[in-house]
Structure formats: structure tokens, C-alpha cells
Design a protein around this nucleic acid. Structure first.
Lengths: 142, 142
DNA sequence: TAGGACGTTGGAGTGCACTCGAAGCAAGCG
DNA sequence: CGCTTGCTTCGAGTGCACTCCAACGTCCTA
């Protein structure tokens, strides 16, 4: 369902059908086409009959996109990044900035989660040692 | 916009209007009413004219809900937890289980984020030392 | 007692990120 | 040749978590 797992890049191959890519990435074919429509893919090659032929480069890109997606970066942000990549090397600074902003967000998110985790631990402990406390303080009982 | 900040519980007060609670929690009045509708609040008291009067207990509950929300727990899960609380002490075990499941998810999420963070760091470093690399390996240039 | 801020309800609308359906080509196989 | 499988496009639908609206009632201060 979710992506998470690696890309068992099969062999010396470099042209993949959409369903192969779907299998590798865990994304659906629909989603891959949608990514392309919204400008999140760097122009996918086509066969003589117009079918998509993804390359290892595309697979790498999708792996990165997967990571960015895991950070919670909105799709619009990833599209922005893709645009910068398309525009060439002179956007290195801007790309770096975008990634740094994302890093800041991720760091903040991690500490939020760690904070929440400690509340969770506290309550789990409470329930572990409970069952006989008649009038526990507020909040602790919830 | 987002909640994040503490609840400057003003004084010996124990009856708050919806807008006071909104100010304390960072939630909107709309959202507070919605929480009540969907069963995420433990029956809020009313004034003689039918207006909501929240107590410190409600504020505590909302603080917990805020934490659970930060974990990414879906609203349905929080509603489930609220139901268990309403049902009394015999649901302690189930509540603990639910919290433990959530903790597992949060831990997993944290390591996902840390993983993504290292990719981010890698790329940021790349851009930091770049600008002159003509043909960097795939993926590194994205 | 008048004005304005704040409260109530039910239900509809929003934004995001997919997710799916329908209709129609194209390739490969027995 | 017919069949299956897979591809194409466009556009509509889904699920989540709000978010807002309209119409109206209430509270407080001058």
C-alpha cells in the first residue's frame, strides 16, 4: 500500500512500463500518470506507440519524491522543486533553500512527535499500573 | 493556526465560552462544535440558555486530543478512545492497547522522518559543495 | 433600549492527494 | 480472428479533516 520499500531494480534494464514502475514504487499507474500531469515528473520518454517508458533515472527521481512525500512536503512543493531541477544548475541555491526549509519542518515535526510520544508513554504507564486508582487527577484518567 | 502552544489557564475559572476555549487551544469554534458533534468531546455543559460552558476538565481533554492529533492518529481513532473513556474504567486495557498501537505508529513515523532527514542532509550538502560539478551521478543532481 | 459582539443549529463547501471509471487504441498469443 | 492484457485520455469520485454559511437567538455595555 504505502511505498516504504526499496526498488529491486531488476537488471541492466533501463526502459520500464508504467505497471513495472508501479510494482517497484508501490504507487499506482494512475498516480504515476497524475504525477506527470501535474509536472512532478521530468518528462517521461515514450515508445513509438506513445506508451510511457520509464528509465532508471525516473526511478531515482521517484525514490526521491517518495522521501520528500514522507517528510509531509505538500505536492505543490515537490512540483516547485521539480521545476527548479528542470530549469538547470543556476537554481542550485533555490533548491538548497527549499530543502533546508523542508529540513526545518521535518526537525520540528520530529520533536512534536517525540513530545507526543512522552505523553503516550506516560499514559500507557498509568494504565499499566492502574485499575485500582479511585480518584486519579484530571487528565490522567483520560 | 496550528495548536502547538500551551494553555494559559487564566485563574480559578472553570466555565469558559467557546471563544475562550478557541483562544486557548488554537482550534476554531467551528472545530470545537464539530468535535462535539462527532463524539470527540465528553458531553460539554450548557448555560441556562443553551450556550456551551467548557470546564478545565474539557481543556485538559482538548490538550490530550491535541497531542493525539499531533501523533497523526486519525480522528476516528480519537473518537474511539473518547468512547472508551465514556464507558468507564473497565476499558483501561483497551485504551492502553490503543495507545500502544499509536506509540508504535509514532515510533515508525519518527524513524521514517529521520531517514528522510538524512536524504535531505545529503542533498543539502551536495548543493552546498556544488555549482561546479558537471556530471554528478544520478539522483544526486535532482 | 439600542447596538454590536457573540452564541446556536444544520448542512453545504473546501483543499489535498489521490483513486477510479469509461471509452478507446495497440500488442501479443493460440 | 478473437481474446486478453495493458496502455491512453479526460473527468468525475473518494476520504479526511476541517471550514464556512445562513438565519437566527442571546448577552453586555452605554
Amino acid at each position: 500500500m504505502t511505498v516504504t520499500e526499496s526498488t529491486p531494480r531488476p537488471d541492466g534494464k533501463d526502459r520500464y512500463t508504467i505497471s513495472e514502475v508501479a510494482a517497484f514504487t508501490g504507487l499506482t499507474a494512475h498516480t504515476l500518470r497524475w504525477y506527470e500531469r501535474i509536472g512532478l515528473m521530468p518528462h517521461v520518454d515514450r515508445s513509438h506507440t506513445g506508451q510511457r517508458r520509464f528509465t532508471n533515472r525516473d526511478l531515482d527521481w521517484l525514490e526521491l519524491v517518495g522521501k520528500l512525500r514522507l517528510t509531509g512536503m505538500p505536492v505543490a512543493g515537490m512540483v516547485r522543486y521539480a521545476e527548479l531541477v528542470r530549469q538547470g544548475e543556476h537554481t542550485f541555491g533555490e533548491r538548497q533553500q527549499l530543502l533546508q526549509d523542508t529540513r526545518r519542518d521535518v526537525r520540528a515535526r520530529i520533536s512534536e512527535l517525540q513530545d507526543a510520544l512522552s505523553v503516550l508513554d506516560y499514559k500507557i504507564n498509568y494504565y499499566a499500573g492502574a485499575g485500582a486508582a479511585p480518584c486519579a487527577p484530571e487528565g490522567a484518567t483520560s
